[in-house]
Write a protein that binds this DNA or RNA. Structure first.
Lengths: 214, 214
DNA sequence: TAGATTGTTAATCGATTAACAATC
DNA sequence: TAGATTGTTAATCGATTAACAATC
């Protein structure tokens, strides 16, 4: 498998490919062309071929891609053929939603520990996991080999939680709080901030209407 | 205010600027330079200046930007100086989380109606809003002038819900379900799919470790 | 063989960054 | 005046798309 420097844009599209490919398997579709994928994803077929070709030759000329084989390959590229363990901090509604979703759907990323600062929540159960106090964070992360932290606390707490996760030694953080967090270079941080999506939607709703009215 | 065609990348950064600027006001910081903003956001100062300059001259040479004035201007650009009404479909944990967050924090985008297909949920209250049956969707959207739909149902239902929203006449959809939805060109759809972020995180965690070990 | 579709190179397009005159 | 910082043009960089030989 080739390993040049892969652009972020490519890496972010791979999970989306995976999503569509999984749908295809469920519908017992076994072969797909870049054109077909492009239609489903609103992407240029050449882009899809190029994205995949960074990692190897996965298709067959004249035929297309074998869906199951491609799923396997993309999962390998994303390192999803091993399980990643994650800790979730913040047992609110969003935390609940993620735990539920996670336990039913994903086996490649598993939330195995939940923490909260609120004494009333400690000891309660979410999806089979007992909510633990923040004091237990560091020890649990180390002993369970957890490498991902998921932050679902209010914005005001988020940086503190990130700091604790970093010193406990996680390699990646997925932050849902509406705040830009500072972490050392060697820790990867992704922001899943729906406010951004919601507010940019407001821009387009008005402005596209204007364009049409012209 | 100039109105060329603005790139998506720029529009997506504006809400992030807003976030940081709001933080600054709360800390009673009244002036900020592009350099300072760039440090906070991990962005090139030139890019920030260029982004803002698309819409007008908001800064003062030698001084920087007035925080409150810039907030006001960005809010105008994003059309946040009027309230946008939104309907949320899917009263699960994620729906709860969004309603709560929304009612406390945002007044520019207001969720004013909640729907669910599950009869057990209908009539229950989320944050002061009574959960309504799907049959009421179209009428409510029209009578309340709702233009945004927020989808928090399972992936299998998401396309159907999107179709109903479109025929009820919304202009924009924010989709949280892990599925690519098809909507007509004149409807704007944004995907807030954290699975993408989580899985691409798995890629970087392993691959950056490899890079460091080399 | 004819039709389809990949992998890949070259061309295009767009976005980011550097540089600097203008000016507070 | 000297220092700082904007707005903007030009240069660079990177990502997308078109085109096509290879081949199933």
């Amino acid at each position: 498998m080739k390993q040049l420097k892969i652009s972020e844009a490519v890496v972010r599209r791979l999970p989306v490919y995976l999503q569509v490919l999984n749908e295809l398997t469920m519908r017992e579709v076994h072969t797909v062309s870049s054109q077909e994928l492009g239609r489903k994803l609103n992407l240029n077929p050449a882009q899809i071929r190029k994205d995949l070709a960074y990692f190897g030759e996965f298709g067959r000329k004249g035929i297309g891609y074998d869906v199951d084989y491609l799923i396997e390959k993309i999962r390998q590229i994303l390192n999803l053929d091993k399980t990643h363990y994650a800790a979730l901090i913040g047992a609110g509604n969003l935390g609940h939603a993620l735990c539920n979703y996670n336990s039913y759907i994903r086996d490649d990323v598993q939330i195995t520990a939940v923490f909260d600062a609120n004494p009333n929540k400690i000891g309660t159960t979410i999806n089979g996991l007992t909510v633990q106090p923040m004091e237990a964070l560091s020890e649990q992360i180390r002993s369970q080999g957890i490498r991902i932290g998921i932050i679902t606390v209010p914005a005001s707490e988020a940086q503190n939680v990130a700091n604790e996760l970093v010193s406990a030694g996680v390699d990646g953080i997925l932050n849902f709080a509406p705040a830009i967090l500072k972490v050392p270079d060697e820790v990867r941080i992704h922001h899943a901030n729906f406010t951004t999506e919601l507010l940019s939607l407001a821009y387009y709703i008005e402005n596209e209407r204007l364009e049409r009215d012209e």
